[in-house]
């Protein structure tokens, strides 16, 4: 028996069709938009479509969470970062530096799709029902059923995720801070910052955090070599970076 869309009632079928198309178009839009802001907006569109499909499948609570957390928080975070780093930073989407990458990506994607389609024709033994409980037919609302399962059977994972969230928040703070590893700027660095105005970088840091380019690193090192023993004095400037020699620890 081949399942058919027409087997569904008209409202259900229509809902699925419209929401599915919205989700698909949104997905394609994320990938194909030149501007990252547009991508983010397309992502919201896709998420909304999926949220509708959640509702359609009796997962009302998750649909709400989807809209609030994903569309409301996460995508906003994305937009925030886009703005922070500069909206104007866009990639040349037409060109591809790695020649085979795009071709192979599409090819592999199609292959994977074909394989999934092949496999989906089979019926799979799924084993015993989980301990989570029935989703429908309990006489309770979706939120009730979900909440009950979450706070009884899945209490420990739930608590663990809360710990994970806290860790993520702390991690984000640590990552987003200005990279001042020591207790503060040394006197020399402070002086250099006043003199040069640009952010302070030394050769070691350039190496450690991923240099913009090898050439810049070499230049910085050459500048350091020229500087000789003048510790703490600005020894050179490249592309807005003031290079100083750190005092020996």
């Amino acid at each position: 028996m081949t399942p058919h869309l027409l087997a569904a009632t008209l409202p259900d079928g229509l809902t699925f069709a419209i929401a599915g198309v919205i989700a698909l178009v949104g997905s394609l839009g994320v990938v194909l938009s030149r501007n990252p802001v547009h991508s983010a907006l397309m992502l919201i569109m896709s998420l909304f479509g999926v949220a509708v499909l959640f509702v359609e499948q009796d997962a009302q609570f998750l649909a709400a969470v989807q809209v609030i957390v994903y569309a409301g928080a996460i995508v906003v975070l994305f937009l925030f970062v886009i703005m922070l780093l500069g909206v104007d930073r866009s990639e040349a989407i037409a060109t591809e530096p790695m020649p085979a990458q795009r071709l192979m990506a599409v090819g592999l994607g199609i292959l994977a799709l074909v394989e999934i389609a092949l496999l989906s024709r089979e019926r799979w033994p799924l084993g015993a029902h989980s301990v989570a409980g029935k989703a429908r037919g309990t006489g309770h609302s979706n939120v009730y059923v979900l909440g009950r399962s979450l706070f009884t059977t899945y209490l420990l994972p739930f608590e663990v995720t809360s710990a994970l969230l806290v860790i993520a928040v702390i991690g984000a703070i640590v990552l987003a801070r200005r990279p001042r590893t020591s207790a503060g700027p040394t006197e020399g660095e402070a002086a250099a910052a006043e003199a040069g105005g640009g952010p302070l970088v030394d050769a070691g840091e350039l190496v450690g955090s991923g240099a913009p380019s090898a050439e810049r690193r070499v230049e910085a090192e050459e500048a350091l070599a020229r500087a000789g023993d003048r510790i703490g004095e600005p020894v050179g400037e490249q592309e807005g970076l003031t290079v100083v020699r750190r005092p020996e620890q």
């Binding site: 790695m98 990458q101 192979m104 990506a105 592999l108 994607g109 994977a112 394989e115 092949l118 496999l119």
Partner: peptide
């Protein structure tokens, strides 16, 4: 990093092929 992701994707395809 995209290239590495390509490797992961290829792995996925191979894995699915094996299952199939």
């Amino acid at each position: 990093v995209r290239n590495y992701a390509l490797g992961i994707m290829a792995g996925l395809v191979v894995l699915l092929a094996w299952v199939a």
